[in-house]
Amino acid sequence: MTASDAEARGAGQAQHASGVPAARWQRLTRGINLSHWFAQARRYDQAHLRSYITAADLDLIRAMGFAHVRFTLNPALLLDRAAPERLVAEALAEVDRALDLILARELAVIVDLHPEDDFKHWLGDSAEAASIFARFWRALAAHLAARDPEWLVLEVLNEPVIADGARWAAIQRAALQAMREGAPDHTLIASGHRWSSLPELLELEPVTDRNVVYNFHCYDPHIFTHQSATWSMSFLPHLRHLPYPSSPEAIAALLPRIDDPRAREAARVYGEERWNATRMRDWLAQAAAWAARHGVRLTCNEFGVYRVGALPEHRLAWLRDVRSILEELDIGWTMWDYAGGFSVVLDQDGRRVPDVATLAALGLSWS
Results as ranks from 00 to 15, higher is better:
residue 152 L to W: 08
residue 180 R to D: 02
residue 121 H to S: 07
residue 342 F to H: 11
residue 106 E to T: 06
residue 132 I to A: 10
residue 193 H to P: 00
residue 324 S to I: 09
residue 7 E to W: 07
residue 254 L to T: 12
residue 305 V to I: 05
residue 110 I to A: 12
residue 240 R to M: 04
residue 244 Y to W: 12
residue 4 S to F: 06
residue 228 S to T: 13
residue 171 I to Q: 00
residue 46 Q to N: 11
residue 318 W to Q: 11
residue 1 M to H: 13
residue 84 P to S: 04
residue 301 N to L: 04
residue 116 E to R: 10
residue 248 P to C: 10
residue 94 E to F: 04
residue 359 L to Q: 03
residue 363 G to C: 05
residue 346 L to P: 01
residue 181 E to S: 13
residue 33 N to R: 12
residue 74 N to K: 02
residue 116 E to W: 02
residue 289 A to K: 00
residue 216 F to L: 06
residue 213 V to N: 05
residue 271 G to Q: 03
residue 176 L to A: 13
residue 139 A to K: 03
residue 274 R to W: 04
residue 156 V to A: 14
residue 143 H to C: 05
residue 67 A to E: 11
residue 221 P to E: 02
residue 92 L to M: 12
residue 250 A to F: 00
residue 95 V to A: 01
residue 78 L to H: 03
residue 138 R to M: 04
residue 307 R to V: 11
residue 274 R to P: 01
residue 317 A to L: 09
residue 184 P to C: 11
residue 122 W to F: 05
residue 317 A to S: 14
residue 12 G to V: 03
residue 137 W to T: 09
residue 245 P to V: 12
residue 78 L to Q: 06
residue 135 R to T: 11
residue 270 Y to V: 04
residue 226 H to D: 09
residue 254 L to V: 10
residue 246 S to D: 10
residue 260 D to N: 15
residue 174 A to M: 05
residue 206 P to G: 04
residue 269 V to T: 10
residue 194 R to S: 08
residue 238 H to L: 04
residue 44 Y to E: 10
residue 66 F to E: 08
residue 263 A to K: 11
residue 366 W to G: 03
residue 85 E to Y: 00
residue 78 L to I: 09
residue 199 P to I: 00
residue 76 A to K: 08
residue 302 E to Y: 01
residue 274 R to E: 12
residue 132 I to M: 07
residue 38 F to V: 06
residue 62 R to D: 00
residue 51 S to Y: 02
residue 34 L to I: 14
residue 261 P to M: 12
residue 194 R to N: 07
residue 316 L to V: 10
residue 192 G to P: 00
residue 302 E to I: 03
residue 328 E to R: 05
residue 36 H to S: 15
residue 215 N to V: 04
residue 228 S to W: 02
residue 3 A to C: 05
residue 209 D to H: 06
residue 248 P to I: 05
residue 180 R to F: 03
residue 10 G to Q: 04
residue 262 R to I: 14
residue 189 I to Y: 00
residue 138 R to P: 01
residue 216 F to G: 01
residue 155 E to Q: 15
residue 285 A to M: 05
residue 91 A to I: 06
residue 269 V to P: 00
residue 270 Y to K: 07
residue 79 L to S: 02
residue 24 R to P: 01
residue 58 L to V: 08
residue 22 A to E: 14
residue 342 F to Y: 15
residue 162 I to W: 01
residue 148 D to H: 09
residue 153 V to P: 00
residue 16 H to K: 14
residue 65 G to H: 08
residue 342 F to Q: 10
residue 134 A to S: 14
residue 186 H to A: 15
residue 333 W to T: 13
residue 201 L to E: 02
residue 264 R to P: 07
residue 94 E to T: 05
residue 63 A to S: 09
residue 359 L to T: 09
